[in-house]
């Protein structure tokens, strides 16, 4: 891309698949290892964390979702996990999530849309459960590296009855 002559051509390169993968794997690792402060810092100020119910919904704000979190709600969710006040999160389920089958749907120097598969196994009180879904990330480049502008988790069984999910998918 042609930049104007006055602006130095620094690191203005397209976000690569490898860069995006490394970032979302880090995000997954932070959640599985309960490093929530750092996790909260990965998001832009206006970002949404969304777990929809109806497949194909586009107007998330006007739909009933499992989660439709802005920064305030993400913070509350983390506080709930750490507070010891929630019987379903005392202790928080142990989770291992695996992200794979990555595909860059769109990318530019400033933003990209990445889709991947996510399989989470949770374990708590002698019970093991699995939640499988597609995850679509909208990532943006900021001065301090990539940030999440939107993360949408499309569970394959979202329209069926789920178990209580006392952690962050």
């Amino acid at each position: 891309m042609n930049m104007t002559m006055t602006i130095p051509t620094t690191t203005a390169s397209t976000i690569t698949l490898a860069e995006a993968m490394e970032f979302v794997w880090t995000e997954a690792d932070l959640l599985d290892h309960a490093v929530y402060d750092e996790w909260l810092s990965l998001w832009t100020a206006d970002a949404r964390y969304i777990v929809p119910i109806e497949p194909g919904v586009t107007d998330f704000g006007n739909a009933v979702n499992y989660a439709y979190d802005d920064h305030e709600m993400r913070k509350k969710r983390v506080e709930r996990l750490l507070s010891g006040q929630s019987v379903s999160a005392s202790p928080v389920a142990r989770t291992v999530r695996s992200l794979s089958r990555f595909r860059m749907l769109k990318t530019s120097e400033t933003a990209c849309e990445l889709r991947c598969a996510q399989i989470i196994t949770e374990f708590r009180r002698g019970r093991e459960r699995t939640y499988t879904g597609d995850v679509v990330f909208e990532l943006v480049r900021s001065e301090s590296g990539l940030k999440i502008r939107r993360k949408v988790i499309w569970l394959i069984n979202s329209t069926e009855a789920l178990g209580g999910i006392g952690y962050i998918l």
């Binding site: 499992y66 509350k76 209580g164």
Partner: peptide
């Protein structure tokens, strides 16, 4: 809808504790 999501459902701030 936002109030509903806040308390209800498998990822709400209320229902999982009830279920537990």
């Amino acid at each position: 809808i936002r109030l509903h999501e806040f308390f209800q459902g498998p990822m709400g701030f209320g229902s999982p504790d009830d279920a537990e």
